[in-house]
C-alpha cells in the first residue's frame, strides 16, 4: 500500500516545527501565567475568608450528621416512618407558604408594571431624551444591584415587621431586573413600524403603543413569569429579616434546633418551588409556543 501523505524535506519541516513549538510554548506560558495569577488570588482570598481546612475536616462529620439529625424525629425514628408527626405543622406552614406566594406575586406584578413604564425610557432606540435614558438606566441599575434582602432590612425599619416590607423589596428589585431585560427586548424590536406610525403624525406615546408594544408584549410576559419563579425563591428567605412568609418559621426552626421541622419546611419549600417552575413553564409554553420557553 502506498502512503498518500507527502512528507516535506527535513529542513523545511524543521523550520515549521520550530515555529509551531514556539507558538505553542507562548500559548502555554500565557495559560500558565494566568493560572499562577488565579492561584495567587485564591490564596489571598483564603487568608481573607479565614478558610481553615482543619475546621472543615474536623466538622465535616457534623455536616453529614446534620442531615441525619434533621431526618430524625424526636422519638428517634426516621421522619418518613411517621408523616403525621413529621408534618405536624403543615396547616400553619401551608398558610405561610401561601403568604410567600402572594408576596412574590404582588411584588412581581408591581415590579413588572413599574418596569413596563420605565423601560421605553431606558431603551436606546425609543428614549425621548439622552438625559432621561441616562437617569433611568442608573436608577434601574441601582434597584438591581442592591440585593433585595437589603431593601427588605431597610423597609422593615420603615414599614414595620411584616409582609409589606417583603413585597416592596421584591417589587424594587424586580423593577431593576425586569427594566433592563424589557429595554433589551425593545432595543431588538423592528423600528420600521415606528417610522410608519410617526409618519402619520402620531405622538411618542402612540408610537410605543401601536408600533413597539405588539412586537414586545410576548417577551415581556415571558420574562415577568420567569421573574415570578425567581421571586418565589427570594420570598422564601424574606422572613429571615422579618419581612413575612415561610422564612420566619424556617429561621426559628434552624436557630432553635427543631431538627425535623427544618427538613419538613425545606421539603415543602422545595416542592412548592418545583410546582411553580413546572406551572410557569407550562403557562409560558401555552402562551407563546415552544420557542419562547427557553
Amino acid at each position: 500500500m502506498t502512503l498518500a501523505v507527502s512528507i516535506l524535506p527535513e529542513q523545511q519541516l524543521a523550520a515549521l516545527n520550530a515555529t509551531y513549538r514556539k507558538a505553542v510554548a507562548r500559548k502555554r506560558l500565557r495559560l500558565l501565567a494566568g493560572f499562577a495569577v488565579f492561584v495567587a488570588a485564591l490564596v489571598v482570598a483564603s487568608i481573607g475568608a479565614e478558610v481553615n481546612l482543619r475546621t472543615l475536616f474536623t466538622y465535616f462529620g457534623n455536616f453529614v450528621s446534620y442531615f441525619d439529625r434533621i431526618l430524625t424525629l424526636d422519638s428517634g425514628q426516621r421522619v418518613w416512618t411517621n408523616f403525621g408527626e413529621w408534618f405536624w405543622g403543615l396547616h400553619k406552614w401551608l398558610k405561610l407558604l401561601g403568604e410567600t406566594l402572594l408576596i412574590s406575586y404582588v411584588g412581581t406584578l408591581i415590579g413588572a408594571v413599574l418596569a413596563f413604564g420605565l423601560n421605553f425610557l431606558a431603551a436606546e432606540n425609543t428614549s425621548p431624551a439622552p438625559w432621561l435614558l441616562f437617569t433611568v438606566r442608573r436608577l434601574l441599575e441601582f434597584a438591581r444591584t442592591v440585593p433585595g434582602i437589603v431593601f427588605a432590612l431597610i423597609f422593615v425599619m420603615a414599614f414595620g415587621l411584616g409582609p409589606v416590607a417583603g413585597v416592596l423589596a421584591i417589587a424594587i428589585h424586580s423593577t431593576g431586573a425586569l427594566g433592563k431585560l424589557f429595554s433589551e427586548i425593545v432595543e431588538n424590536a423592528d423600528m420600521k413600524p415606528v417610522e410608519g406610525i410617526r409618519s402619520t403624525g402620531a405622538s411618542w406615546l402612540s408610537c410605543m403603543r401601536f408600533a413597539i408594544l405588539p412586537q414586545v408584549s410576548a417577551g415581556f410576559a415571558s420574562y415577568a413569569l420567569l421573574r415570578f419563579e425567581i421571586n418565589v425563591r427570594e420570598a422564601s428567605v424574606m422572613g429571615f429579616v422579618g419581612a413575612g412568609g415561610i422564612g420566619q418559621e424556617l429561621i426559628v426552626a434552624i436557630r432553635k434546633f427543631y431538627y425535623s421541622d427544618v427538613s419538613a419546611i425545606l421539603v415543602t419549600i422545595i416542592v412548592t418551588v418545583f410546582l411553580i417552575d413546572i406551572t410557569t413553564g407550562w403557562v409560558r409554553g401555552r402562551l407563546f409556543g415552544k420557542e419562547a420557553r427557553t
Binding site: 475568608a49 475546621t55 466538622y59 457534623n62 455536616f63 422564601s236 436557630r255 422545595i270 418545583f274
Partner: peptide, 27 residues
C-alpha cells in the same frame, strides 16, 4: 435540582451550624 431549590441564605444557616459563624461558612 433539589440543591438549587434551596436558597444560598438557607445553606449559609446550615453551614453556620456546622463550622460556626464567620466567612468560612459563607464560602
Amino acid at each position: 435540582d433539589s440543591i438549587r431549590g434551596v436558597d444560598t441564605l438557607i445553606w449559609a444557616l446550615v453551614w453556620i451550624n456546622v463550622v460556626g459563624l464567620g466567612p468560612f461558612a459563607g464560602v
